[in-house]
């Protein structure tokens, strides 16, 4: 049981930090522009696919740099020529625009790369077990993922709090007009933030693609989870996003690792039911079975009892 706990923690950490890379970009975009970007996970998918195509020619390492940049540029273009135009029609229109964009990107990916799973692999140099614990390998690539995610968090934190551009961005979040009056080009800042945010999602895709498999449904699997994280953590809060990412990553990992379920609870309570009871499905539920829907349950509960999220300062 002990080894399961250790590996569950490691897995949860990897997933959580990966989710954070997506959530950080999303929350940055949201806090600046008030746009909940539904297509965020689609940029993550684009990152993986771009990296796959680039790595066919140059190998993994150039793709690690090039693909996120490409995705970021694409994101900036979307902001400049799409979102900015829709901005006039209000927030609902913006949300719906990104919703349509997510739909479109998924279709476009299927058009360009086909529907079959792509054989996108981690680089050979990281293709060894970092350590073996209780008979299970911990791949070096996963350690690399953890390293990249933490580096991104530190860099982002540093940029936002210690640099001039970070201070301007922070100011633009709360007082866009004042920042504009001070002579800063606010639309340019928006575009840059959107580009960087989507670029981060692309980077997450590049490093997650080899592990979580690169296929057209990969955005769908992650899309709403990232939303859940941003909302649970509190809209616009970077620290909240980090905490919520780790929370959800670990929660799911532990839930899967556990073997508990309703039968155990009922045994403990001393209640028993016949097998053909109409609610039999509920009495047989186990934690691993419902692990992937726990985040949604958490989301609904958090929104009911604390609509601003764990760390959020504003409500919508």
């Amino acid at each position: 049981m002990f080894e399961v706990l250790i590996f569950a923690t490691l897995n949860g950490l990897v997933t959580g930090l990966l989710l954070f890379m997506l959530a950080s970009g999303l929350t940055l975009i949201f806090s600046m522009m008030g746009v909940l970007n539904f297509a965020h996970a689609s940029f993550y998918m684009l990152g993986a696919y771009f990296a796959y195509s680039i790595s066919l020619y140059t190998g993994f390492w150039p793709a690690l740099i090039l693909a996120p940049v490409l995705v970021g540029v694409l994101g900036a273009l979307v902001e400049r020529y799409g979102l900015r135009r829709v901005h006039k029609s209000g927030h609902v229109a913006e949300l719906i625009f990104t919703f349509g964009l997510a739909f479109l990107i998924e279709e476009a990916v299927q058009f360009f790369w086909g529907r079959a799973t792509k054989d996108y692999r981690s680089p050979d140099i990281l293709d060894f077990p970092l350590f073996t614990l209780f008979g299970q390998n911990f791949p070096a690539y996963k350690a690399f993922m953890i390293f990249i995610s933490i580096a991104i968090f530190i860099a982002l934190y540093f940029v936002l709090t210690r640099t001039r551009i970070g201070i301007i961005i922070q100011a633009a979040i709360t007082h866009p007009h004042t920042v504009g009056n001070l002579g800063h080009n606010v639309p340019l800042i928006f575009m840059a933030v959107f580009g960087v945010g989507t670029g981060l999602a692309g980077l997450a895709g590049v490093i997650a693609g080899p592990v979580l498999t690169t296929f057209p449904g990969m955005a769908m699997v992650l899309g709403s989870i990232v939303f859940v994280i941003v909302v649970i953590g509190g809209l616009g809060s970077l620290a909240g996003a980090l905490v919520a990412s780790l929370l959800i990553g670990l929660l799911q990992s532990y839930a899967i690792a556990s073997d508990l379920g309703m039968p155990d609870l009922l045994n403990w309570l001393g209640v028993s039911f016949e097998r053909d009871h109409p609610l039999n499905d509920i009495w047989r539920l186990t934690l691993p079975q419902i692990a992937p829907i726990l985040p949604y349950l958490l989301l609904v509960l958090v929104l009911i009892f604390r609509p601003s999220g764990l760390f959020g300062k504003r409500e919508s």
């Binding site: 909940l36 927030h91 949300l95 709403s224 939303f227 859940v228 909302v231 809209l235 499905d281 509920i282 539920l285 079975q289 419902i290 992937p292 829907i293 949604y296 349950l297 989301l299 609904v300 929104l303 009911i304 609509p307 409500e315 919508s316």
Partner: peptide
């Protein structure tokens, strides 16, 4: 607004996922 939209998303996913379990 956003809170309503997110609850509807969460409830939607919850019900859709539980429909396969129940």
């Amino acid at each position: 607004g956003t809170v309503f939209a997110m609850i509807s998303l969460g409830v939607g996913e919850l019900i859709a996922a539980s429909s396969l379990i129940l």
